[in-house]
Design a protein around this nucleic acid. Sequence first.
DNA 1: ATTATATAGTTTCAAATGGAACAAAAATTA
DNA 2: TAATTTTTGTTCCATTTGAAACTATATAAT
Lengths: 157, 157
Amino acid sequence: MEQKLSLQLQDFLPYRLSVLSNNVSSLLASLYTEKFGISIPEWRMVAVLGEEPGLTSTQIASRVAMDKVAVTRAVQSLIEKRLVRRSSSQADGRVSHLNLTKAGRQVYDEVVPMALAIEHKVWGTLAPAEKDYWDDMLSKMESRVSTLREELLEFNK
Amino acid sequence: MEQKLSLQLQDFLPYRLSVLSNNVSSLLASLYTEKFGISIPEWRMVAVLGEEPGLTSTQIASRVAMDKVAVTRAVQSLIEKRLVRRSSSQADGRVSHLNLTKAGRQVYDEVVPMALAIEHKVWGTLAPAEKDYWDDMLSKMESRVSTLREELLEFNK
DNA sequence: ATTATATAGTTTCAAATGGAACAAAAATTA
DNA sequence: TAATTTTTGTTCCATTTGAAACTATATAAT
């Protein structure tokens, strides 16, 4: 007997992920958009540069899943806001290294604890073992999805 | 002793959710964008209308987490593509009811199994109990996030 | 050395998105 | 019933985003 295939959007994994992710992101963004006038991609840049000073645009792009156009724009905007400084590499004339300014570092230092607090609240009262379990599931999904994407890419060649 | 707060973006829940969600969405979108020429919001409309024919724009907006402008645009585009039909309500002159055309239904019937197959592959080989556990965690996060959003909204009043 | 190819980053242009103002039809109040 | 307020949906405008073309430097091949 044939089973009727039905797709309840509310229960559909991609949809739920999308809604949850948007809500979390906008919640987080409310921490820094009004107060510091920076956008989500700009915050991400600040976050990476806070952990790894001196990265180049391309390195940032690869770490933050932004395309290079987005990086260019975020860099320009952050430089205008005096949160990031650019210094050209003498080893490679195409490249420049990016760093937080003192003001940028202050933004970082102020936002990070709030961001971690939100993350903590979203986790809720998960026991460490549960959190590990979740992390594990998430990692597996991440890798399955990237495998599927590669397969598809391969298929379309 | 003071603990240094650090934020590794790669391990940060909001970031991981965002990347995973984008990857899943674009994987899914590859099923219908080239073949049927519809966008993600358009696909979502088709999906809801496939399950609940006759909804109005506002009802769709509430089910699909789209704002009304996005719904207007998706409706217009889907009508041009002859995938959706609009019939004005005689009970309420402001409103019209939306339905899939025969062609729209075909898109739905063709995409749903592929979408479910992708979902299934992303789940991987989770045992039913594990899947229930995941669903449960996801639901809890959803509700915590919406609570946090409300608190924030309240706070900003 | 010269030419060709690849990489880093920017600019440009078109499409997508979001918010505010708007028009039309209900619903509510006086 | 007339005036006011809400609700539904659209339009307009400004901002954001993405893809392709482009510039400049570096690397590889002849």
